[in-house]
Amino acid sequence: MSQSGTTPAATPAKTAVQLRGLGELFERVGILIVLLVLIALITIVERLANGTAYFLSIENFSNIARQIPWQAPLALGEFLAILTAGIDLSVGSVLALAMMSTVIAAHAGVPAIPAMLIGLAVGAACGAVNGLALTRLRLPHPFIPTLAMVYIARGLTNLLSNGTPILRVPWEFRVLGAGNVCLFTFECTPTSLRIPVPFIVVVLLFVGFGIFLTRTRTGRHIYAVGGNPQAALYSGINVNKILTLVYILSGALAAVGAILLAGRTNSGEPQAGVGTELVAIAAVIIGGASFFGGRGNVFGVFIGLVIMGVIGNGLNILGVQPFWQQVAIGVIILLVATLDVVRRRTNRT
């Protein structure tokens, strides 16, 4: 009966639905298109300007895959916070504190794996403080507790280390942070295709969190809290528990970044991760998550990280002054955020 009823109004309604469908499609793959355009542009400019094709080489991809990893877990944690319409400013400082804790533990004779677990526990504990401050003290916005944690964690890091780096970490850290797996050959030869271990760690982490967010109840509840906290509450979801969990996960993920970075730099560095929270936020926003919460996916965040890596690496190869990288990243943030606003507006018809 509604079939006949809708015929007169069908045309405009149908196009509106199609437009919205396009919007959803863009939300899924749009960011991939941005990445491909970027790669094509850099390749063409390199060919025209230098006459080379290094950017597209496997060796260079391996470079990019080495540059991204330690920041990737931080971006993932940041994504969880932004998914609930929150933010975690403390990921960089928590990374430093977790890094220092795990390296100090290792130097004190704790075996590598338990030392890593100590780092993870420190990160998770920082996140728990963030989450509990938000939900129990009822602070108005996660900006406040995580801003406090920026200073607390950084200060504790410097207290622990007297402000000086600690050199050398156990080999297990080195494997995770700087190791390579070579395809097709057991021993790595100069010609074999090297896949960085940290890159594999990051891919596994993203796949795992992708499954967690889309297939488990808790994952769906995180999206629900971000989409409409009132609705989540009415549905019997413990919103405070979800929020606390999100910040605990963000802290623990910062610690994963800390382990990878310690392995990569073969040290514990008290100034590590300064400003990295902004890199993480940028990757999340470029990756299509919305600051209003409830929108985005881990695939987008991953592509966001790759885009930032590709910009840095590509402009480098083109011999562009590094400062232009920052300008380029800023412009892309503006572009992607504008797209998000436009999309929201078309949904509000």
């Binding site: 629900a224 971000g226 989409g227 409409n228 009132q230 009415y234 549905s235 409830g294």
Partner: peptide, 12 residues
Amino acid sequence: DLALAGNLSIAA
């Protein structure tokens, strides 16, 4: 006030 989460599907 329609306690639904707009970002989730009808079934969800």
